[in-house]
Design a protein around this nucleic acid. Structure first.
Lengths: 228, 228
DNA sequence: ACAAAAGTGTTCCTTTTACACCCATGA
DNA sequence: TCATGGGTGTAAAAGGAACACTTTTGT
């Protein structure tokens, strides 16, 4: 019997691009590497694939290890497989990306500030491996995705103002949006619940909203909604 | 010095979903497996990743092996990594998909009809491994992509009629489109060259068109074009 | 009283949709 | 001459873009 099989020639890791949003800016979770290769450099949270898990589970496990949070929705981005991307040996990585509210998903207390932090997007330090490229791919993907799905809600706290939502879209798309048109369009989609609460700020109070996932799911069922 | 490294635990393959278009229907290239596992079953063309190549190069190599054609544009789809997806051992596969004109890219002569064929999409046989799932993922991706990029041209011969282009869109989207509106919209994009040739058919002659890649690239440079 | 953000409506223009007729050709 | 597909135009509706003023609040 002829059997087609070739033994493993490469290790496999997963790397997670966790994207957060705070003070009107996008952030990415970075970890300082404690071991070689690339010891001392900043890098994306990642880890080796174990024998009994899929890459999706591995990504969840890695995420939980760094943030303590389970069940964040992550999406596969791409495999990075350059032959020399890891100096220790052939290592392929499967990149994932996830959107999280960095308030809801703080770092594990065990991580010192010097070992992990939310880095503002336009202040990325030098990164190990090909992680800069992975982040760029994640951002391109995010900009594409947000045109099709109202991803933004995963990046905001449960209750948010329309202004916060708009600032998020502007941060992701890198453009300015007309306040009135933005509000009208979002309201027309009927995926927001207006709450009986307001957010006190320096000026006039702003209504708080929450995301109506049921209504959104119905929208999706009838074909995707185009946004902004 | 602490070094973080874990030896390989899984083999890696690439599998290619080659999508063609003929007689108004989408087709997928299938290969009959000659070796175990899954010997005798139909499956996607695929192969093991070699030590000196990226997954993209492996996909190109596999494609060339089966069709004799180099340099087809392929896109990474997703990694499939279920622990038991291959009975011989742990094997992850990186799925790719590519659009080809099945006229331009025939099978290698060395492949007998019984070993490889272009299978109509709605007549897929039972497939080995998780290849049915891979095909479904490719089709979902194709439907999404074609809304954003005029992928269709890669599936048609160099010279085509507007009707052929419309039928392709209808096959991919699974809907009927208004002939007049479709023609107007495509022409308005100015990515078609009207040729001085006609296609003789059973009835009135139809103008032939070719795809104007330069014009399309300019469109893309100014933000994506939404289609149909 | 003023600075800063919240909130609201209207107009114009572009795009999308729906729909009907004449033309050329081969059988 | 008729059946089949090629080719065109228009009107109504919907959606998107542009734009200005009033309200509330803290300082």
């Amino acid at each position: 019997m002829i059997v087609q099989y070739q033994p493993p020639i490469a290790s496999i890791t997963v790397d997670c691009v966790l994207i957060g949003f705070k003070d009107g800016r996008l952030q990415i979770l970075l970890i300082k590497r404690s071991a070689d290769p690339e010891a001392g450099k900043w890098a994306l949270p990642g880890g080796y694939l174990e024998e009994t898990e899929t890459v999706e589970l591995a990504a969840q496990r890695v995420l939980e290890k760094f943030t303590g949070v389970k069940q964040v929705y992550m999406e596969q981005l791409k495999v990075f497989s350059a032959v020399d991307r890891n100096p220790v040996g052939r290592v392929l990585t499967v990149a994932f990306y996830a959107l999280v509210n960095s308030d809801n998903y703080p770092l594990k207390p065990s991580w010192l500030a010097s070992e992990a932090y939310w880095c503002e997007l336009d202040r990325l330090p030098e990164l190990g491996f090909d992680h800069k490229m992975i982040i760029d791919t994640a951002l391109t993907n995010l900009r594409k995705d947000i045109q099709i799905r109202p991803l933004g809600f995963e990046l905001l706290p449960q209750k948010f103002t329309l202004r916060e939502l708009q600032q998020l879209y502007e941060a992701i798309l890198g453009t300015e949006l007309d306040r009135r048109n933005f509000r009208r369009k979002l309201k027309a989609m009927e995926i927001l619940n207006e709450l009986d609460e307001v957010k006190k700020g320096a000026h006039k109070d702003a209504s708080l909203y929450s995301f109506n996932k049921d209504a959104y799911d119905k929208l999706v069922a009838n074909g995707y909604a185009l946004l902004v």
